[in-house]
Amino acid sequence: MYEAKIVINKKEAENIYLLGIEIPKNVLKKFQPGQFLKIKINQRMDPLIPRPFTVHAIEENVVYILYQIVGKGTKSLSKLRKGEILEFLGPLGKPFPKLKNYVICAGGIGIAGFGFLLQKSVNKKIFYSPEMIFYGAKTKEELVRLSFLKRFGIPVKISTDDGSKGYKGIVTDMIEEEFKKDPRTVLACGPKPMLKRVAEIGKKYKAKTYLVMETFLACGTGFCMGCVIPLKRKKHAHLCIDGPTFLAEEIDFEFLS
């Protein structure tokens, strides 16, 4: 693991934080959109296992992580201040697939990993820009990093469950409306029910669907085989080395916890 200094750990919304850590440039060069790193708060036995986070953005020598407090690990992380040191390992996992003519669908904190994809697709060398971003949250307060997302000149379609901003309802309803007219490849990240719904919509409109999955993850290196994603094929996949992005049609949702 490498040591990294915190340059920012700022509250973006209730329970949502933006963490920036300084990373050596030679390590930074290796990061691709869709990959993740695992972070350990130094020397702590509790929480014991480093937590995985997708890369939200990279600027200069700083990796930004957008995270939501969901448990003990993220709670401890949110208490750290600028100047403190933590340990990380990464990049881990496989990058996003290189897609063209596609849209992004993000639910809640699922938006986190797409910032880096937008940054990396500006020059269209390896990654291409999405044609549209569908981004849903519970309320307008939970919609974060909007000004950053809008910087890339790609239409951002917003939904909130309570209608406090954008379309009132769930993000997948907007996708379905769009796909009725023009189905396209979709890359989605968000809560499991959303991913399941995106998979159904993708199937219905014959749109290639990629899902960024989540599960309990321990090692992140393929060592423990704990982060299993059940596939319809004979063999299970392991999120940390085979993912985190999977083709929706391959996932066996019945056995997904």
Binding site: T215, L217, V228, S257
Partner: peptide
Amino acid sequence: KGNPPPRTFETPCGL
């Protein structure tokens, strides 16, 4: 094939 998920769970100072 091994067990279906979840396969791991963190406890205080343990796994």
